[in-house]
Each structure stands twice: as C-alpha cells, then as structure tokens.
Simulated scan of single mutants.
Amino acid sequence: MTLSMYQTAVPVTIRALENLAHVLKKGAEHAAKKNVTDETLLQTRLIPDMLPLVKQVQIACDMATRGIARLAEVEPMSFEDNETTFEQTSSRIHRAIEYIKTFKSEQIDGSESRTIILKTRTGEMTFEGQAYLLHFVIPNLFFHCTTAYNILREAGSELGKPDFIGQA
C-alpha cells in the first residue's frame, strides 16, 4: 500500500494540532489552579532567546495551515498574531484545524514534485513538494508543538508523553 501526500500531510497536521490543543488546555487548567494569569504563562519562555509559548502555538498553526495550502497551490489562510488568552490561543488552533479539514486529497495528492518557493527574511527557499512536507513542514510543526509542551511542562503543568502523542 502506498502512502499518499494527503495521508502524510493532512491527518498528521490535524493530529499534531489537536494534541497541542489538549496540551494547552491542561496548561490553562494548571495556570488557573496556581492563579497564574494567561498573559504570564503565554509569555513564558524556556530560555531568554527563545520565543514564548504563544508564539510557539502561532508558528505551529501557521506551519500546518500554510504547509497544506502551499502543497494544494492555494494562497495560505492568514491569522493575526494577536492572542493574549488561552481561549484565544485555543480558538486559533481550532480555526487552523477546521481550515486544514477543508482540503481534499485531490488537492494534495500529486504534489510530491510540485515546486514550493518560500520567501523568507533571508531570501528564498525552494523545495519539491515531498521534501517540503517531510523535511520542512512536519519537522517545524513538531518542533514548535514540542517547545510549547516543554514550556508548559517546565511551568509545572501535569503533562506526559501520552498528552503530546495523543490516543492511538
């Protein structure tokens, strides 16, 4: 059986974001128990030169939505980076999931060799679709989900590996 680009992209990004939403919910519950404001925990960092929790979530959502859209040759949905509460941050994750669910396999399958050009602050990056998904989108998505998990874990949230991985 062959694994399609759609199967590799869409269910994986949805699951990662659903698990991130679960982790964030447990972080919000921990903050409420400890009387820590949303703003304080959302601005928490592992170390001073890393981005805060809220930015990790924003980037994870952007990586998933923009990655899928680019594979489908659709202009990516844009989100404002203006979340200041757990409720707003959770809403962003759920909006990203709903957006990703709108893509059909016909839009993604066959994108293995599609040229993807990213414009960055430092120039352009060019990928073929499969390399873009497997070597850029998925690793970046999981990096930012993992970092969000680690920030919440370091802040004292009762999280474990099953929270990050989700149920089978």
Rank of each mutant, 00 (worst) to 15 (best):
Y6D: 08
F86K: 02
T146F: 10
N150K: 14
T2F: 11
A155K: 07
K161N: 07
H22Y: 11
Y132A: 03
T146R: 09
F86V: 10
D109V: 11
R153C: 00
R45W: 07
F136S: 00
Q7E: 15
T44H: 09
I165V: 15
F143A: 04
L41P: 00
T126H: 05
E87F: 00
G67K: 00
E124F: 01
R92Q: 12
Y6E: 07
I108D: 01
L141K: 05
K101C: 08
R114F: 00
I108E: 06
I108M: 09
A148Y: 03
G123Q: 04
V74G: 02
L133H: 08
G156K: 09
K101Y: 07
E106T: 14
T146Q: 08
F143G: 09
P76R: 09
Q43K: 12
A96F: 05
T84D: 05
A69S: 15
F127L: 04
E18K: 14
L46F: 02
V10G: 08
M5F: 01
N19Y: 03
K55D: 14
P48V: 01
P162N: 11
A155L: 02
T120I: 11
P162F: 08
D49F: 03
R92C: 08
D81L: 12
A28V: 10
S78F: 11
K25N: 12
T115C: 03
K161A: 09
T37A: 13
M5I: 14
D49L: 03
Y132L: 05
R92V: 07
G67T: 06
I116G: 08
K104F: 04
A72T: 10
F103H: 01
F79G: 05
L51M: 15
I108T: 02
G67M: 05
T13C: 15
L141N: 06
G156F: 04
V74Q: 14
A16G: 15
T102N: 11
F86Q: 04
Q43H: 13
